[in-house]
Design a protein around this nucleic acid. Structure first.
Lengths: 228, 228
DNA sequence: ATGGCTCTTATTGTCAACAATCAACGATGA
DNA sequence: TCATCGTTGATTGTTGACAATAAGAGCCAT
């Protein structure tokens, strides 16, 4: 039975995984806005299973930091204050810098090429004026960047940070007066990676973070991140 | 009712948390060695609770990557191969570099002083020839380093990486021919932080990682991490 | 002896019922 | 009017029982 495609081991997705994935998507997309309460019994009824598996799914999201648990009271979608958002961007940049560093030791030109592909898609979305698609491509860029480093732990940590970023993006929507700068920033990072310019990559990733934070909190200036 | 001591809010630690903490400790200390199976029912009986809370505790450890789950078969303490261990050290260094960078923007001399205190304790343990105490102090050093950066997300990610490191340390035990180099490495990092020498800190953290990996896998040389 | 079949056993996965807890509401008394 | 205290409703926390699943033992036919 020679199929054109390599037949990969089937993954019997468990009920809690499925439930967690659904909830995670709703949280990322804002259908479940920050502050919203999740009631085990309700979700269980909607999904047609008992509370057990749902409870497990909710526990996972809680550990990921997407929900906060108040004992005997309930689970609520996390609300991020300014400190949290700064923390998210700080941590995410840390992970991405590490990933970029690994890429620099590997095959920078191949990595750069793939990332430039993401940038192109982002630019197309910009031309089409599709805000949502731009954000999708934005996320995809960062996801690919870390995925290509092939580090399970960095990827895992990054996945959580990306969901949190998505939540923040719902708030940032429309903050880019000119979306072309957004595209340009990403292109700059991709090109620096392609050219193997390690230090430049680091600087641009930091700049990317600082820019986002300035846009989110216009009153403050960005934290100093200049080298000593 | 004016008591001499400020009365702080009581924290009702939940059953799953307690159970998870115990299991985590046993895994870190090697009482539950890699490959060992954890049976929900057995643990539940030993701790005098039902399977529910235990199941929740086990789920947490699974999500932390300390256990692997095989559906309908059981949960087993993760076994790390060379790739995993390199990944752990890579990720941990990434987090610590980010933390050090934050410290450099804050109060480097205070941070350096506290870390030098950890180093002193490590040195005392070395003088006393207490292997276990040295490792404790080693872990404590890295824990403090990240904790002082006051980033919830970095700290959380780091906590998991530290337990994994502990597991690796059980294997590395006795690999330092001369423990004084171990102390010296940490002192070097602490001093660089104290002096606010950002780039030097980064280099020394990378070197610390490379040294550990060389000790663990003497055959290979360390990955190149020189700046471009 | 060996390949395949069934049966057993150990373990997780799921469920529904019950207990514990907390916030909000409303009654009570000064 | 206001503070206090019990009551109530909603939600999570816990439990024991049962279902589903997979590995391995034993048996049988080849």
């Amino acid at each position: 039975m020679k199929s054109g495609q390599e037949l990969r081991p089937i993954v019997q997705e468990s009920t809690p995984s499925l439930a967690a994935a659904q909830l995670r998507r709703h949280i990322a997309e804002g259908t479940l806005p920050p502050g919203a309460q999740l009631v085990e019994a309700d979700i269980a009824r909607e999904l047609g299973v008992s509370r057990g598996p749902i409870r497990e799914a909710i526990q996972r999201l809680t550990q990921e930091g997407l929900l906060v648990s108040i004992r005997n009271r309930g689970f609520f979608v996390s609300e991020f204050d300014e400190g949290d958002i700064r923390d998210i961007y700080e941590a995410r940049t840390a992970v991405e810098k590490a990933a970029a560093s690994i890429l620099a030791d590997g095959d920078p030109s191949r990595a750069g090429a793939e990332l430039l592909g993401c940038v192109d898609r982002m630019d197309e979305a910009r031309s089409a004026g599709d805000q949502v698609a731009i954000s999708e491509a934005d996320i995809a860029f960062h996801e690919r960047l870390v995925a290509m480093a092939a580090s399970p732990r960095l990827s895992k940590m990054h996945a959580t940070l990306l969901t949190e970023t998505r939540m923040c993006l719902n708030r940032l929507r429309g903050r880019y007066e000119d979306e072309s700068v957004r595209v340009a920033e990403h292109r700059g990072i991709a090109e620096a990676i392609r050219d193997g310019k390690r230090d430049l990559v680091m600087d641009r990733l930091d700049a990317h973070k600082d820019d986002a934070l300035v846009r989110l909190f216009p009153t403050h200036e960005a934290s100093s991140t200049a080298a000593s």
